[in-house]
Nucleic acid binder design. Structure first.
Length: 488
RNA sequence: GGCCCCGUGGUCAAGCGGUUAAGACAUCGCCCUUUCACGGCGGUAACAGGGGUUCGAGUCCCCUCGGGGUCACCA
């Protein structure tokens, strides 16, 4: 019984998008679930598309996601190198072996010639398929031309007839008519292999037992199996994963402004919340459980729960997960994570972050929303007097002015300016005056916050604001209401 | 267009021939409450359509429709 080896094999063409992250996650979970190895391989055979820095971005993102790999370019391993361009010399001999056995052949057709024929086929409304023109060149002549330095590629020689097939753990047995398959390029003119060839060679050489990848490879997988057969190798177990969609018709894509994993992290989504949410996109534990730590995912993961249809990425649900994860943080953890966001709005104001954190933790969905929620503590925002009017609290402009005039002297006497003292003094005064809480506390909160919604009630806000600021805001509100009522 | 794949509420998703077709997000209403949020309770909302097979079909088969993928010297 050979042990499981899975691999995540991204191209360094940019950030790690969420579909890629999910593929990586499932690949990782499968390996861990079965006590196997999770390997990272960089597929950079298309030098033109490579984006500088993207390789590092992949390392960073996988680490940030907590998907530690056992083998890879920057961690080593017995099957390296793990970057395909560094394996350049390993591919051609295998291709030549196929040429010898008749499963592949060199092709000297130029791009221009092919482009013309492709265009002509399109004009006739046909699907272009390479006509095996160069297959007719005698072996010796072909080899001579190759050695003479003439540019060439090596193509896979797909049988004219018959069925190519493979078995997928998720999709089952998939077949393709050989006659519909094209003789794809295996080795490009620059000597590097195409994905079509490299994935087969490397997966075999690296001992990969389970290939997990997106469904975009579903229709070309039969061709890859033809290659395994030609070499006499045992193909891996395939698991093709459905794509992650933005909506019913579009894939998630950076081009449309959809966030990458890194984007979500910098917006203030928690790593574990993202992973938890992503895991449930296209996979179900079979029951209605929703919360899983990474360890619990490993324990619960089962390919039987994989869904075959594409899943739409639902930001609202992610946000809900995030809010739940934030609530489960310890107060200390929350304070630490929230502090930089508090600083953006309140830096240097001397606000009691500890108390603010307590008030904010249950109200934080995503950290990037925090600054706007607390900014009023630093600066009194502009607001409409209509905010004072609240039917349920029995509050009007007149009653508000009255309540504020009543509260000002009460608050001026509060010592020390602590929350319990504030609370007790205010509540006692309200009770002794025979007033109701609502008509007093509603306008008070509006007067010192200028907002309909705040983290905490009037007492908490007054405490956070401090004595001088609170009293100043109340006095300003009294003036403002007095003026407004006179005009009216 | 050819070939391949997919199709349960707006979204995720359970269901694997017999269920009043779960649950979650979102949404709506009520309660709690010095605001908002949290929390509690409740509501609206789905088997794409049509044929079969079967005593019985969301579950099996076929067709239609819808969606996706793929047809590169990209992966």
């Amino acid at each position: 019984m050979t042990s499981v080896r899975t691999r995540f094999a991204p191209s360094p063409t940019g950030y790690l998008h969420l579909g890629g992250l999910r593929t990586a996650l499932f690949t990782y979970l499968y390996a861990r679930k079965h006590g196997g190895k999770f390997i990272l391989r960089i597929e950079d055979t298309d030098q033109e598309r490579e984006v500088p820095g993207a390789v590092q971005l992949i390392y960073d993102s996988l680490r940030a996601a907590g998907l530690e790999y056992d083998e890879g370019p920057d961690v080593g391993g017995d099957y390296g190198p793990y970057i395909q361009t560094q394996r350049k010399d390993t591919y051609l001999p295998y291709a030549m072996q196929l040429v010898e056995s008749g499963h592949a052949y060199p092709c000297f057709c130029t791009r221009e010639e092919l482009e013309e024929r492709r265009a002509a086929a399109a004009a006739r409304g046909e699907t272009f398929k390479y006509d095996k023109h160069c297959l007719g060149i005698p072996r010796q002549e072909a080899l001579r031309r190759m050695q003479s330095g003439e540019p060439y590629v090596i193509r896979q020689n797909i049988p004219a007839e018959g069925i190519a097939s493979f078995d997928d753990l998720l999709f089952g047995h998939i077949e393709a008519e050989c006659s519909t398959l094209d003789d794809n390029v295996l080795i490009k003119q620059d000597g590097l292999p195409t994905y079509n060839f490299a994935n087969v060679i490397d997966d075999h050489l690296m001992g990969i037992t389970h290939v997990t990848r997106g469904t975009e490879y579903l229709s070309s997988a039969p061709k890859y199996n033809l290659l395994y057969e030609a070499f006499g190798w045992t193909p891996p177990v395939y698991i093709h994963l459905p794509v992650v969609m933005k909506d019913a018709t579009r894939k998630l894509s950076k081009r449309y402004g959809d966030p990458s994993f890194e984007d979500l992290l910098s917006m203030g989504y928690l790593r574990d919340a993202i992973i938890n949410f992503i895991a449930l996109l296209g996979w179900s534990p079979g029951n209605d459980r929703e919360f899983f730590s990474k360890e619990e995912l490993i324990e619960a993961f089962d390919e039987k729960g994989l869904n075959k249809s594409p899943a739409i990425f639902n930001m609202d649900k992610l946000t809900w997960f995030n809010a739940e994860y934030i609530r489960r943080l310890s107060p200390e953890e929350y304070l630490e994570l929230a502090t930089p966001w508090f600083d953006r709005a309140l830096g240097g104001r001397g606000i009691d972050y500890c108390r603010l954190a307590e008030l904010m933790q249950g109200r934080t969905e995503v950290f990037n929303r925090v600054p706007d929620m607390v900014r009023f503590l630093a600066e009194m925002p502009g607001y409409e007097n209509e905010l004072y009017v609240n039917k349920k609290q029995k509050s009007t402009l007149e009653s508000s002015l009255d309540a504020l005039k009543f509260m000002l002297p009460v608050l001026e006497e509060v010592k020390p300016w602590q929350e319990t003292a504030l609370h007790d003094t205010v509540m006692q005064a309200i009770a002794e005056a025979g007033r109701k809480n609502g008509p007093v506390l509603w306008p008070l909160r509006i007067a010192i916050s200028g907002q309909a919604s705040t983290p905490g009630g009037a007492i908490e806000i007054a405490y956070l604001l401090g004595r001088e600021e609170t009293l100043a805001r109340i006095r300003a509100a009294i003036e403002r209401l007095t003026a407004a009522l006179q005009t009216a």
